[in-house]
Design a binder for these strands. Structure first.
Lengths: 120, 120
DNA sequence: TTCCATACTTACCTTTAGGTAGGTACTGCC
DNA sequence: GGCAGTACCTACCTAAAGGTAAGTATGGAA
């Protein structure tokens, strides 16, 4: 009962956040759109390693969650850009600490992973 | 070239962070260990919905990355507890904003998901 | 006509993550 | 002996995510 109250006092919304930006690519996509709107091809360049198919998919999902807005400039060849919504901006803010942590601990994590993979 | 310099000025460590805590369950596990060490069975209770097998697996991985420490009290029945390392504490700090965001936007996200699933 | 650029779709496949069920190890108690 | 508690292991399976390759739509330029 006491534990139950504790859970009520500090509900964790991580499950919600993860539903919106969970997965390998979404956080990175959002990070790269911080700098302002970008065309599909630009996003693809910035998010190194992502396949076109997966990028399209992830962008579509982020648009569906109102985190991103897609603007079609009605041109040929197509010209489409993606930008953070105000809602999306509140979300990408929360990624900053995580990004910094990763940057600061990149070497340490890499070393740990390397030693872990050399042990069977 | 200019874009290239830009990437150097603000390297993104999100890929690193995601390697350590990516997935459905790790963020939640870490969140629940903020309150202090917990026995395996306690963690399982707190992280609602996780299977025993997956919990074991995730805990092992987090221990391997030095985010958690596992203490075996050498008892029978077994008594084992898990706690955040100082390193792990720095990481769980970065989850706070994400957790708050999720909490604040839980209703909004739920509504969006509901309307998305009612459209074929 | 063909080719180009851009963003997207589809089919099929592989990889990864998560899940269910059965079982183990260990000591203590009945 | 069986049962209990606790944490873990293993086999097998399903679901989800990611990936490769081929293709489409559109207007404009050569």
């Amino acid at each position: 009962m006491e534990l139950h109250m504790d859970m009520m006092d500090s509900p964790c919304g991580l499950d919600v956040s993860l539903k919106v930006i969970g997965g390998k690519w979404k956080p990175l996509i959002l990070y790269h759109l911080q700098g302002g709107p970008a065309r599909f091809s630009q996003v693809k360049q910035r998010v190194v390693g992502i396949s076109e198919k997966v990028l399209i998919q992830q962008l579509r999902e982020l648009v569906a969650m109102n985190v991103l807005i897609r603007r079609d400039h009605q041109r040929v060849p197509p010209m489409v850009d993606y930008a953070l919504t105000p809602f999306g901006e509140t979300l990408v803010e929360t990624l900053r600490p995580l990004c910094e942590w990763g940057t600061q601990n990149r070497a340490r994590v890499a070393a740990t992973l390397a030693s872990a993979s050399s042990q069977p």
